[in-house]
Structures are given as C-alpha cells and as structure tokens.
Design a protein around this nucleic acid. Structure first.
Length: 293
DNA sequence: CACTTGACCTGTCCGC
DNA sequence: TGCGGACAGGTCAAGT
C-alpha cells in the first residue's frame, strides 16, 4: 500500500481539491470500512465544511469545521479519488488513470459535496478504513502515542535516527525500518530502496551496522522518500493519487520489483528473497550477507 | 523479548 | 478452461 510518499501525494492533491467544500451526504456499503455511529455522522459530518488535510505517518487526516476529523488509513489497496460534478473519468488523461467510472466495485465509501462533486474511498481488499472522531482525540489514539518521528521533518537528525534504530539493536534492520514506532511511514518499497542505497543487507542486526553506514541509511531513506513524493509515489498495482493518476517512482527504483534485472550500480543480477516475512529485493553483491556469527 | 504465523479481504498470476 | 496455491504497498493479535 501506500507508504509515506503515496499518502503525502494524496494529501497534497486533496488539499487542493476539497478544502472549503461542504459535505452533503455519505454512503457506504461495507461497515468495517466506515465504522461510525449514525448519530455522529449526522451531527458532525453531514453539513460540515472541510478545513484542511493533514498526514501523520501513513494516516490521512481530513479536518472538519465541527472539530471532528476523518481519520483514514489506506492499508494495502485504498484509494481516495475526487471527481468533479458529472466528471466520469480521471482528470486530464483517462488513459493514464487506473480508475474508470466511479463508483465501481471497490468503492466502499462515497462522500458527496454540496456542489455535486464527490470523493470516493475505494479499497479492493477492504483492509483500510475511514473513521470519524473528535480532532482533539486523535493524538490520544494508541497509534499516535506510539508512532515514531516523521523521517522528512526538518528537525529529524541522523543522531535521532540512530537512537531510534538502537531501540531494537538485535533485530534485523529491515524489520526495524518497517516498525512504525521507530520511524513513521516506511513500508516495503522504501525499506528495500533505502537499504540498497546504503549498501546494507536487510538482515543485518542494527547493532552490527557501523555508524557511517547508519548515516548513509539516514541519507538514503530521506532521499528516496523525497524523490518518490516528487514523482507522485509508487504505483505497483492499485495506488493512484487524488486525481486517479499513477505515481512514477517505480521507474526510478533500483531494486524493488526488479528481480532478475541488473543492479544499476554494479551490474549484478538483483534477487528477491523473504525477510521479516516480506518479499525483499537486494543486490547480492552490493548488499553482502552479514556474517551470521 | 523477538520472530513467525495467521487474520483481515480480493484479485491476479503461475503451474499442473 | 479450471483449480489450487502463492503472493500483493499494512497492521494486529496470538503463538513459539
């Protein structure tokens, strides 16, 4: 799913498309995708105006004039796609759009604005959700209490990164990067890409990584995330931005989904294995297997 | 404590 | 053309 760059791309799109709009109606067909009391929906969602769109880790926050917010997690296959009144297909380039006419069979929630435009929450696998709750209570959610710092924040230093990683010194580095309580927003794609950038094997124990390599990983992670946001994120299969458009980061990826192809750095064939229970792409030459003691 | 597996779901792809 | 299994960007909970 959407990792930090994808969710950030959706945030940027929505903040240009739906701020100030007033919600006139909401429809949903799968209660787990929209687990909210009808009373709250009536009192705090219908009639509310959208005041802003924020992101924290992989979670999207749509703030409302009622002091409530929509807290949204796209999980693996979630999409948030906006359509103008009467607009049937994706803006600009229908051929470039992964989504056709909406709603479609993966549409779980539809928000209709007063001006007739709509926002669709699509989610093929139904893992994602849209939750309505008081804005001030969001920070008290367990997830928000525990989630780590934003890796692209201006005040996030290499020293902090190293300290956070060292909370799990004996774990493999990939598992630690994927741990949202260590650093926010990193998922499978950017874990693989940043480890390739720093020439670190994903199973290396955190405590065994020399400080200089940790610094390289810090830089690689931030560079990869920033580049991906610039490219509109990664579309592996389902992901699209708020206009229904694909992201192009994967055309710049060095290892992710490139098994069987050549490492752009050394020419060795990239392999795919399993690490931390996830499909993992590495250059077996650049990212040498750590000495397994 | 840390790692693995199973759940949550649907869809696609691959081998037989 | 069909069927079974593995796998897919993410988290949780439970088991070892």
């Amino acid at each position: 799913m959407p990792e930090l760059p994808e969710v950030e791309t959706v945030r940027i799109g929505l903040s240009q498309l739906i701020v100030d709009k007033q919600i006139a109606a909401v429809n949903y067909d799968w209660p787990k995708s929209f687990p909210n009391a009808a009373k709250d929906v009536q009192n705090y969602l219908i009639g509310a105006q959208i005041t802003g769109v924020r992101r924290r880790a992989k979670v999207l926050l749509i703030d409302l004039s009622t002091a409530y917010s929509l807290v949204i997690h796209l999980k693996m296959t979630g999409q948030l796609v906006y359509r103008g009144a009467g607009q049937r297909f994706g803006a600009g380039h229908p051929n470039d759009s992964l989504v056709g006419e909406l709603p479609d069979k993966s549409t779980r929630v539809t928000f209709t604005f007063k001006d007739g435009t709509k926002l669709f929450f699509n989610d093929q696998r139904k893992f994602g959700w849209v939750r309505l709750m008081p804005t001030l209570e969001i920070e008290q959610l367990d997830f928000f209490q525990k989630v780590g710092p934003e890796p692209l924040a201006g005040d996030f230093t290499a020293g902090q990164f190293r300290q956070r990683l060292m909370r799990r010194p004996r774990s493999g580095i990939k598992a630690v990067l994927l741990d949202q309580t260590v650093v926010a927003g990193v998922g499978n794609i950017y874990a693989d890409e940043s480890l390739w950038g720093a020439k670190i094997h994903p199973e290396t124990k955190v405590a065994d990584i020399p400080p200089r390599q940790v610094m390289k990983l810090y830089e690689a992670l931030r560079a990869v995330l920033a580049l991906s946001i610039e490219k509109g994120g990664s579309t592996d299969r389902n992901y699209v931005d708020a206009g229904g458009r694909r992201g192009s980061y994967l055309t710049f990826a060095n290892v992710f989904r490139r098994e069987g192809k050549l490492c752009p750095r050394c020419g060795t064939v990239i392999i795919k294995t399993r690490v931390a229970g996830r499909g993992t792409h590495i250059c077996p030459h650049c990212q040498m297997t750590p000495k397994m003691l």
